[in-house]
Amino acid sequence: MNDKPLPETLLPLEVDGVSFRHRGQTLLDDVSLRLGHSGKTVIMGPNGAGKSLLMRLCHGLLSPSAGSIRWADGKAASDPDVRGRQAMVFQRPVLLRRSALSNIRYPLALRGMRRQQRTQRALDALRHFGLAELADRPARVLSGGEQQRLALARAWALQPRILFLDEPTSALDPAATKAVEDAVRAFHAKGTRIVMNTHDLGQARRLADDVLFLCRGRVLEHTPAGRFFDTPSTPEAAAFIRGELVW
């Protein structure tokens, strides 16, 4: 891993005819989509639509029951080169029982970075997210907002080409939510491809370049954000935007 920008060999991501079945239930059905080189994609949809599942499939945490997920040059999700250039921030970050600093150093060590470089990179990331003072604090005693920022800093240190965020603010107060949104913009400004799930319509409006609307395991819309919010093409999306109950 080095600090130079990586050559563009990861994106686009092609999801083709992907289904996911679990215990006889079809949770994702024939999903196809393409994620281009840049931008912030927000995945929306009612609970149980399969948003988190789709994200996990893209990130390679799960394998599809049918269909294919291909990165640039046809690379599979399991390709180590592909895995090493992604990061994901979860709804509830899992932090290790060690200091904030060590939490960031850990994945860098997994990538074989030298000890001294690890610490430097981790400190930079902490500083970037205003966590430098907490470097030696055990990660598990930080507040919820601080923990999520630490998770973002950990992703930051990995310098991913693409960042997945799975409802990163659903458990946070407004101040902490703003910090996360700022972080997303910072990642974007640095050229990181963003894919994010959210329930929060306001947040989607603030952040999305394009919206992927999922309902009952199917992709109903994938359009630029402006068009999605102004002229949704499916009744489900329209109802969802009006704040009605959709399932």
């Binding site: 990130h59 390679g60 992604q86 990061a87 994901m88 979860f90 899992v94 994945p107 997994l110």
Partner: peptide, 9 residues
């Protein structure tokens, strides 16, 4: 599991 797999462990 998911977090560690995501981090590359």
């Amino acid at each position: 599991r998911e977090q560690l797999q995501s981090l590359g462990a």
